[in-house]
Nucleic acid binder design. Structure first.
Lengths: 353, 353
DNA sequence: TTGAAAGCGCTAACAG
DNA sequence: CTGTTAGCGCTTTCAA
């Protein structure tokens, strides 16, 4: 098939047409490049007739303005880096999805950085905002790419985790102390007094806070805190399973477990089943997150829901406000959590195995 | 605190320093802009001494080259659009993770497009490669953004699903017919003869192929295909649960179910438990994918594993090869699948409820 | 409402 | 090994 385009007395192949720029369109349409630019970006500033001419010319040769030139001129890429430790984790994926939605609604795109918790990769993604490949960054992990420019508030950054106290950075999060307390109180109210804890990595701020909440609830109930009841692991199913094996070995008559994440709970549930423990008849299990699969577990998980969607949406909008120089009033926003009572927790009964 | 920088007899504030470009660095280092560029991009082409001078100057003022200028000049953004219907789906998230990894390894970044199966969003993401915001696109869904330029092979595109036959587009996938056949044969070998099917959306090519495989296996076993045994739903847990409710209502003594996705199976499992069906003692359940949670289900799922990691890695590398003009030899690559026998399937036993 | 013209920051010939 | 120079494609004053 023959394909060509006649422009200004010369014949262009399809491949050449693909390379046309705004000046070529101006030529074809018989207007200036500025007018073509306006026709695309601020159509209302161009007369109907001129606009039609431009659009027709563009359509004929299949022209779409390159965003590269615009980005360079404006010094903005309209990309935003979103950092997660693992996109595969059902706690993070809805957050990222909400961020992508919110970004799109405001004309931005998401550069996904799955860092696997690797500081090198975090740093290299952070560099993208220094090098203008992105206009800002959202961190969904506990570590900050330690670059002064972010702290100096020269580069837009938002974090969805508490990190170490850092008043210079905008943060959206939840009240992990309250969450830890709430979950513990639920178990306490059911009559459980010896509650094993399966925490994520010890150094994580969120884990420390949740444990603090646990201790607070215990103290209010006049129950001594027993460090031997807390097991540190990772936020994953496999490691949760391992922790459960340790627990049942250490404390065969354990009546309640509080894990710091649904993913961990799924591993625990798996082991408990294998060992023929009845949940919740013999062991109660509560956790945090309310990932989408929590309600489909056997039994459905009682858990403290985190507002993943709001978290994603709000933090993205906060970042974009920052980028667009509409700084939000508050540096730290705490979102509401909620206890979801399902079937993995039940009344304490003295043990009869 | 006072912060300033003395350059060429003028005092610069920290904010001004952030705006320095390659020419300023050249000035400070006493070399040309070209040399600065080389020092960063091809250090081996610059003498040790000059390189040190440049790097020192850059470090002193915290300079990082802007990728915007480079992109414009080179006509490449080093971004790649990855389209998924839903990043929250545990089938897609490992694929995306693998893609991100592979992209990074070759100096590219991933622009995540969570399309929610919405054609408008697919189209708007596809436009990003026309507008050079991205250098190529990978489609993980069954629909193609119908833009001629992709078909004409002017724009780099790779698909991980079979779509409608399209020889012009590079595709990486699995042999869904063989997968459907394999799963069915497993059930058949266990003595099951009435096998209910829970498929995803009927129009999906992958579903049609899997069903075809099911029919093939049945035919080879001389069992007549009964259309009443196939239930169409979505690839989700909630809809899988609904399908299961219909099945047990329609066929209370069903002995085997073949669902087209682990996510569906989790919903089915949930309902089966609620209805007090024993899996696999009374009903066997097999599916496809082997998502990470499949082994932690109660009981652990027998399933045909899909090579999500390889799928992601290979398709990303194929796309980048395309972008870098090293066209791969084959247009269609089929990856190996594997039956993973766990505990959700068992020998057929006549029904005693 | 439209046009002319000056860059945005970088790269890549080409020349030395 | 290093410097000069001409753009890449677009936006944006400023002037008409």
């Amino acid at each position: 098939m023959l394909w060509f385009m006649l422009i200004n007395h010369s014949i262009l192949s399809r491949a050449q047409v693909a390379k046309l720029n705004i000046n070529d369109i101006a030529l074809i349409a018989g207007v200036s490049n500025a007018t073509v630019s306006r026709a695309f970006r601020e159509p209302q500033k161009v007369s109907q007739k001129t606009r039609d001419k431009v659009m027709l010319a563009a359509k004929n040769v299949g022209f779409t303005p390159s965003s590269l030139g615009a980005s360079l001129k404006q010094g903005r890429s309209y990309n935003i880096v979103v950092l997660v430790p693992d996109i595969t984790n059902p706690y993070f994926s809805p957050i990222v999805r909400a961020m992508e939605q919110a970004a799109n609604a405001r004309g931005y795109s998401v550069l996904l950085g799955d860092t696997q918790d690797c500081p090198d990769r975090e740093r290299s993604y952070a560099k993208m905002v220094k090098s203008k490949q992105a206009d800002g960054i959202i961190i969904n992990s506990q570590r900050l790419p330690l670059d002064l420019d972010f702290e100096q508030e020269l580069l837009p950054i938002v974090s969805t985790s508490e990190l170490v106290e850092n008043d210079r950075i905008y943060r959206i999060g939840v009240d992990n102390i309250a969450i830890g307390k709430l979950a513990t109180e639920h178990l306490l109210a059911l009559g459980h007094t010896r509650i094993a804890v399966v925490s994520g990595n010890e150094p994580l701020r969120s884990c420390q806070d949740r444990l603090l909440g646990y201790k607070l609830a215990l103290a209010e109930a006049n129950i001594a805190f027993d460090p031997a009841l807390v097991y540190y692991t990772q936020y994953s199913t496999a490691t949760g399973a391992k922790a459960a094996e340790k627990i049942v070995a250490d404390i065969p008559n354990i009546s309640a477990i509080f894990s710091f994440g649904d993913l961990i709970s799924i591993g625990i549930l798996h082991v408990l089943h294998k060992m023929n423990y009845q949940v919740p008849q013999q062991v109660s299990l509560i956790s945090i997150d309310d990932i989408s699969l929590a309600m489909y577990c056997t039994p459905p998980l009682t858990t403290v829901a985190q507002p993943m969607n709001t978290l994603g949406e709000l933090s993205m909008n906060t970042l974009i406000d920052l980028i667009e120089k509409k700084p939000p009033e508050r540096k730290l926003t705490l979102l509401a959590h909620k206890l979801i009572c399902r079937e993995s927790t039940g009344q304490y009964k003295p043990y009869t195995r």
